[in-house]
Simulated scan of single mutants.
Amino acid sequence: MSYRFLVCLSLMLAAALVAGCTALLPKSKSETEAPWKTFEEVKKTYDSIQPGTTTLQELKQLGYDPFVNKNVAVLHYSDVLGKYAPNAVRDEFLEPGLRECLQSSIRCSAFAIEYRQSRRTRVGNFFLDFINYERRTEITGWRFGAVVVVVGERVVYKSWSGVPSISEVEETKNPLGPVQEKGTSLFFR
């Protein structure tokens, strides 16, 4: 072995001891670019939208402007029809705002948002994770989606769905450790 290799190996081992082994496990973060940083913020903004009262201009000031906020989708009248009334036989079964939208056809549009923030953190034994024997990943975050229907210059309907607090765990165990994924390719080349 070369002197450089031994020095690098020694430095890596020293760093592992100083930092603590779990600090060396991978972490990742995924979030949709948005003017809101938390579930509570986006939900509070959504709650301030009042069907029958909120105007299109006010809606855009709240962040539902597709030309400013890149993650706002504009839905056409036919999209609203397909989403909320695909099999509606009678109008009286629809929400009043949706009924108004469907009656005004091309004057109706909608704005849809879908935001998420998630963090993946590997936890557990560094050595077992490193040799691919056992991996545990904790996933945390939130998800929020909303559709706001507008007729002309006025909001007529809104709906939301989401998960205020995501808490999931993924576990992977490979009894053969580093050779698990290699499978039969080790024996048959």
Rank of each mutant, 00 (worst) to 15 (best):
residue 17 L to V: 11
residue 36 W to H: 04
residue 103 Q to G: 14
residue 18 V to L: 12
residue 146 A to Q: 00
residue 185 S to K: 14
residue 12 M to R: 09
residue 151 V to W: 01
residue 188 F to N: 13
residue 55 T to R: 06
residue 166 I to C: 07
residue 49 I to R: 03
residue 181 E to G: 14
residue 35 P to Q: 04
residue 180 Q to F: 04
residue 184 T to D: 14
residue 128 L to Y: 02
residue 126 F to L: 13
residue 6 L to M: 13
residue 81 L to P: 02
residue 66 P to Y: 00
residue 17 L to N: 02
residue 132 N to L: 11
residue 14 A to G: 09
residue 173 K to F: 07
residue 137 T to D: 05
residue 151 V to D: 03
residue 137 T to A: 12
residue 45 T to C: 12
residue 122 R to D: 10
residue 152 G to M: 03
residue 61 Q to A: 14
residue 54 T to N: 07
residue 12 M to L: 13
residue 159 S to T: 11
residue 27 K to L: 06
residue 75 L to D: 01
residue 32 T to H: 00
residue 94 L to N: 03
residue 3 Y to S: 14
residue 169 V to T: 15
residue 134 E to W: 00
residue 36 W to V: 04
residue 32 T to V: 13
residue 69 N to T: 14
residue 108 C to S: 05
residue 156 V to H: 03
residue 122 R to N: 14
residue 169 V to H: 05
residue 115 Y to I: 08
residue 88 A to M: 09
residue 20 G to K: 04
residue 30 S to V: 12
residue 174 N to Q: 06
residue 7 V to G: 08
residue 71 N to Q: 08
residue 154 R to E: 09
residue 80 V to Q: 06
residue 142 W to A: 06
residue 25 L to Q: 05
residue 133 Y to D: 03
residue 63 G to R: 00
residue 86 P to A: 10
residue 150 V to W: 01
residue 116 R to D: 13
residue 153 E to T: 10
residue 92 E to S: 11
residue 56 L to N: 12
residue 146 A to W: 01
residue 91 D to T: 12
residue 63 G to D: 02
residue 39 F to K: 01
residue 14 A to P: 01
residue 1 M to H: 11
residue 4 R to Q: 14
residue 7 V to D: 12
residue 160 W to D: 07
residue 48 S to C: 10
residue 20 G to V: 06
residue 152 G to Q: 06
residue 126 F to T: 04
residue 28 S to E: 09
residue 38 T to F: 01
residue 97 G to Q: 01
residue 32 T to D: 09
residue 153 E to R: 09
residue 10 S to Q: 09
residue 88 A to L: 09
residue 108 C to N: 01
residue 121 T to K: 10
residue 137 T to W: 00
residue 171 E to D: 08
residue 50 Q to K: 15
residue 172 T to Y: 00
residue 7 V to C: 11
residue 148 V to P: 02
residue 14 A to S: 11
residue 149 V to A: 05
residue 117 Q to G: 11
residue 170 E to Q: 07
residue 175 P to V: 10
residue 14 A to L: 10
residue 50 Q to I: 15
residue 43 K to E: 15
residue 122 R to Y: 02
